[in-house]
Design a protein around this nucleic acid. Sequence first.
RNA 1: GGAGGCAUAGCUCAGCUGGUUAGAGUACUUGCUUGACAUGCAAGGGGUCACUGGUUCAAUUCCAGUUGUCUCCACCA
Length: 873
Amino acid sequence: MKELEKVYNPQEFEDRIYDFWQKGRYFHSEPDDSRKPFTIVIPPPNVTGQLHMGHALDETLQDILIRYKRMQGFNALWIPGTDHAGIATQIKVEEVLRKEEGLTRYDLGREKFLERVWDWKKTYGDRIINQLKKLGSSCDWERERFTMDEGCSKAVKEVFVNLYEKGLIYKGNRIINWCPQCTTALSDAEVVYEEQPGHFWHIRYPVKNSDEFVTIATTRPETMLGDTAVAVHPDDARYAHLVGKTLILPLVGREIPVVADEYVDQDFGTGCVKITPCHDPNDFEVGKRHQLEEILIMDGNAVINANGGKYEGLDRYEARRQIVRDLEEGGYLVRVEEHTHNVGACYRCGCTVEPMASSQWFVRMKPLAEKAIRAVREGETRFVPDRFSKTYLNWMENVHDWCISRQLWWGHRIPAYYCDACGEMVIAKEEVHTCPKCGAAMRQEEDVLDTWFSSALWPFSTLGWPEDTPELRYYYPTSVLVTGYDIIFFWVARMIFSGLEQMGQVPFSHVLIHGLVRDSQGRKMSKSLGNGIDPLEVIREYGADALRFTLATGNAPGNDMRYYPERVESSRNFANKVWNAARFILMNLKEEDLSFSTAGLRPEDEWILTRYNDVVRDVTENLDKFEIGLALQKVYDFIWDLFCDWYIELVKPRLYAGGEESAMAQRVLLFVFSGALKMLHPFMPFITEEIWQALPTAEEACVTARFPVYDPALRFSESAGRMEHVMETIKAIRNRRAEMNVPHSRKASLYIETAHPEWFEGAALFYQKLAGAEQVLINSKIPEGTVQLVCDGASLYIPFAELIDLESELRRLNKELEKARGELARVEGKLKNQGFISKAPAALVEAENAKKEKFLALIAELTASIEKMEGRR
RNA sequence: GGAGGCAUAGCUCAGCUGGUUAGAGUACUUGCUUGACAUGCAAGGGGUCACUGGUUCAAUUCCAGUUGUCUCCACCA
């Protein structure tokens, strides 16, 4: 038998245990028709940034489920997400390039630049992946690289062509969100809105050949350079006479019409709206309806272009200042109001996005969304907790077409090919070099796809699709997606409609949603606040098991949790407790034959087995419902409170006594403890495995052991009840001794007066060991001068004559009596209620009756004691 | 404007399909070097379960409203 170190030191063994699992290839799984698959998809870590708590949480939850299912005999597979096409990397590399070498990506050229990005990802990806290992997960860089290069990109082309042929992808000139800093288009989901204080400029537009004018109000005066109309509401009497007239655009001098359009809200602002089709989505629509000219006034960096006349070359904000000044000088500015409004910013770089008309690729969402809505409505995919399906449906029902093209280089390049000679465009899975129409050379679309386009294919592209692989047939649809609620729109929704469209089936049956990890003040952890906590630091200090425990417990699914160092500390303390329990058991296992059987069990054995069995049942139920925190809490309570604080203490006398009694105790200890370790293993794999390797157990590794199963043969309700009765009295004695400040070392005889002497059979040792009893006398003559304790079904007497203060004793007894009477009144009230008797379940009425009896007996005992004491006063 | 969450001990939070003497961790008070563990053991104090109604024999739990608070989505030029 191996010995355990004296001190719990996770750093000493976690790496070793990880290697042990790797060698045993416990993380690998292949399709195997004799076992049911269980597959989990989890989101990607951002390999360029810091590993943060969110990843740690994803990994932990995923790993708990995988281990649990594997221990139940499932063939469990984990499909790790990767940051395969995240544009953050590209932007980071560009930034470094600019700072360190003064170069842009265009200086390097596409090929060289992409190599740089790969190098970057390799360096940082390895770092992150190695860190993730510490959480007990295995992530494989080679696999990530493969899926980016080969499998995934093939799937992307396949899907793109597929959707294009069905008319679900189109290229069009539309208003999109443009990030001038990332210089790319963004999807709606990538824009975050924030209330910002701003101004409302009221500007006068003169009517041509008249001294009349209209006043418009705007928050973005610089966009007036692109104005091609002013709109009013068709029913607005104030302006009816102006519809069809021509205005002169101030500063620019362009002649623009006044048009009537339902879009205008008569009650907002002045009731006149300047129309800038190229820089506002609503104006764009108005422009289309009235065949207005479209004038783009900015370039990709949000600098005014040639269409802006004398403002060309100015940044959008400089242009704004200049224009406002000029308007004022020209007498066009009526007034300026303070105005707070929502401003969209790029979620990645925080730069204010510029709505701009631009030629981009879009996915037509309506038909895809319909299927995706139905799948969730009909329960093919279930969100856990269920309320997130509302979030999902709400979004899906109001979804706009998805802008999928990005003006970047890192990512999957759109498989569209153009012929500059004849204007032909070809969409194809294979590269096209010559134009099928005129034979001229073709060039591929420069734009790449949104990261989430390829991420959406993850559940099947990683399994070999579009080939019909055994993996795909075996593992798809997957079982669970584990992720935070912040990426429901980005990823979850898109995986669902992509899976439905390409595979005809939902990608997963359950979506387990967790909350965000916040700091101790409830703030979101972020780089800019500097409040991010590095999981690796935590692991170094407390161990991976402690971190996992912290992340898995103490909050309900889908709710945010706050990170407190104290909580990790308490988790570590629990690990230490388990460690020491193991040490205790190991140093007491002396028997040759430690095989467990139910023959000859003592009441305390039957009690712990019964409780153990209950926990097995409960934990299994909880885990099957993804109630991970609840399950872990039950394992924790069982191990610490029931097993360590009670059972171990109860069996110590037998262990030390030796002989067959001791042997029996050893067998039960080993059986229950190893079972508890198995239950704990999914949550705290390292410590359980390390201990397992030291224990003389039949199964070679905890990771491959079978998860405990509820066993009716281990249910001993009668002796369990009796044992708890004894425990109640022990607690009562301890309580009294503590109140009277009797030190543990001071022993005294214990007299028990009871109508159920059989309850206390063989319990003498327990009172001696745990309640400071010298000898235990049942139903013998009670000496004078004792402290009396009234318990359910028994009165206990301890001769502490000199410590007795009659008055305080009486006060205490009367207080107890009052409490018991209160309880009795409550129970009787219930039982007197005819409605309760007739409508409540019989078992409940029965239980209430039993309670009534119990309280009646207690009250009788207490009254008798009080009377006796009064007599002595 | 639309949707959703949260409100339980000093603090952070559990409490699953209504019935418990309402729990945990932490903090606090007291006593313990009890032969695994002071990262520990034992005992204790501390809660009108936000408020108001409703459903029910029974509401911390279900429903409606109110207040406070947080989040997401949409968006008004």
